[in-house]
Design a binder for these strands. Structure first.
Lengths: 332, 332
DNA sequence: ATGAAAGCGCTAACAC
DNA sequence: GTGTTAGCGCTTTCAT
């Protein structure tokens, strides 16, 4: 039979309360007694039940992570940042994928709340006005990643996607490109929308005509959209809303017997690991995914400990990474 | 204040037991009463506490996933298989990374047991004899992925790594290669050891001299070891113990002005997504990672439900994927 | 410094 | 069919 606190108490000839005190490092337990309890615990190979403890204290040491798809190479490093930070703070982490399905996402949030998670890190783009309001009444602290939200009691951490796109486009313009197309992400994903806006505005400001093709953030959509782009527009450079599509675009370019960057330059976004493994290596915007994760958990921890109320949007710095996939038109 | 079952009972003018019954879909609650309870639940926006429920039933609907590093591209799809299957069966999933640190791994296992997880999916290679015995006394069902274990009450699911390596090497030999080197993985990782043995034995059986260089399974180690291999051995083909190293090797070959497969053929293992995105696309052994995950959870579920006792090793089928990174020597 | 006892929110006999 | 009641294993006043 699995030992409980009562068994330990009996073996050590003390009360349950005392056992509980040593379990919680309460300093007012006398050394000798503490020894006895510790020995009993050892002898019985006793492990306290955190379920029971949670029920008694009405707190759990768990947090939940809800994300679209761990299989998308951008997320594992974010998730790792979250896990590491959570672990460091003594939390264990629930994880669940949503595939960007709003209904599923809701269900998972509620399920995690039922599990009494202390807080939730939510990576979502499908949140509509109504859902957000429901969440507000939830009492469980939530922090959003990669999506800012105004006037809501949620913390959020992300980068400035608009400015990131702006820098990417300026970089391409600086190289002499004028026919720069944009491989955009889904219209319902906020980061994709911001990047697109940054692209369009920057093109316009430079008196260049924007040309956008919208994809799904997947590699396959990158190859497919790229084919269309070549047929319909003939760009000399592409700014893709994420690296996966950029990689797909590159693939299609080579498949058609052209080269990167000699014929077409490609610029991505995210800086997933493969960017440095592809040939040519992909120039891109580096997003501090790991740090976003760590920051999210810190914000959550503050909220859970009641250190801070109100909401806070933190914007982390991105970085333009110059590698091999872009080249000036003049050098052709 | 957060509503509990008592509040619902009062509002619906029934007993807690009745509320509990409708919560658990007990059919013997009369329609009208059930309606009333449901309305009360709705009105109070009541969510049952699974903590309390778990304590009362002495079961939890959680399982734990312990893996080396979610950031390694092989693991996300395995994890996804596990999450999907867990979700389908009504479990929520804990996740934790170990970085292959045996001490940390132990701690995490115990921590999860304290959390009262119903079972654990463990992807580990560092398990020594003693640890395994400790785990045996744990009562919490454990299923191992990518590592078989003999005479232990653990289930395990994996592929036949020895045979996979054998097929890879035969494939290369079949193309006319004789100077085939092996980029091996860490010596303490079972799958790496089996692949190496499969390589060595198959080479010997063909009267070819094996040449192995041991790496760490990382991309960087692939580039580094490949440099040494070229300098010290001059292979015409490489069988790498995983794709990441294969990709690194490919990178180094191009950096030195040589080509794949024209100068050196590369064969990987795992079939991570990037194998189909690299140029040339990587030939490799496809491991059914998603299916391994799903199977692991099914085994765990059986054990947790007491359907089956004793242990079971299941071996899933791998597949040789022919792409572009290998070429016959005669065609050079 | 230690113990007794009440409760955390739910389930599960058992009784009616 | 529904209510009563006794726990599940722990924490936490409150006494002593």
């Amino acid at each position: 039979m699995k030992p409980n606190i009562q068994h330990v108490a009996e073996l050590a000839q003390v009360s349950k309360a005392t056992v509980s005190r040593v379990l919680n490092d309460n300093p007012q337990v006398k050394g000798e007694i503490k020894e006895r309890v510790l020995r009993a615990i050892e002898e019985l190979n006793y492990r306290p039940s955190s379920i029971a403890r949670n029920l008694a204290t009405n707190r759990t040491n768990t947090i939940g992570l809800i994300l679209p798809d761990i299989t998308n190479p951008y997320f594992p490093v974010l998730a790792r940042g979250i896990e590491d930070a959570a672990h460091r703070l003594g939390y264990t982490l629930f994880i669940s994928n949503t595939d960007n399905d709003p209904k599923l996402e809701q269900d998972i949030i509620y399920k995690m709340v039922e599990q009494q998670v202390g807080g939730i890190v939510l990576i979502s783009s499908t949140l509509d006005e109504k859902t957000v309001n429901d969440l507000t009444s939830l009492r469980t602290p939530i922090v959003l990643c990669d999506r800012l939200i105004e006037n809501r009691p949620f913390d959020a951490v992300s980068i400035d996607n608009y400015r990131a796109a702006q820098e990417a486009v300026r970089y391409l313009i600086g190289q002499g490109h004028t026919r720069i197309a944009h491989l955009a992400g889904p219209k319902n994903i906020q980061s994709a929308v911001s990047r697109r806006a940054g692209y369009v505005d920057t093109m316009l400001a430079a008196n260049l005509e924007p040309f956008v093709s919208v994809g799904t953030f997947s590699y396959e959509s990158g190859v497919h959209q790229m084919g269309d782009l070549i047929d319909e527009y003939g760009p000399t450079a592409i700014f893709a809303a994420n690296d996966l599509m950029a990689l797909g675009a590159m693939h299609e370019i080579y498949r058609r017997g052209m080269r990167v960057p000699e014929d077409i330059s490609i610029f991505g976004c995210d800086d997933i690991a493969f960017c440095a493994m592809s040939r040519p290596m992909m120039s891109t915007i580096s997003i501090p995914a790991y740090q976003i994760g760590v920051t999210a958990v810190q914000l959550l921890d503050d909220k859970m400990k009641g250190v801070r109320s109100g909401s806070k949007n933190v914007i982390l710095e991105h970085k333009l990474i110059h590698r091999e996939s872009c080249n000036g038109v003049d050098r052709k």
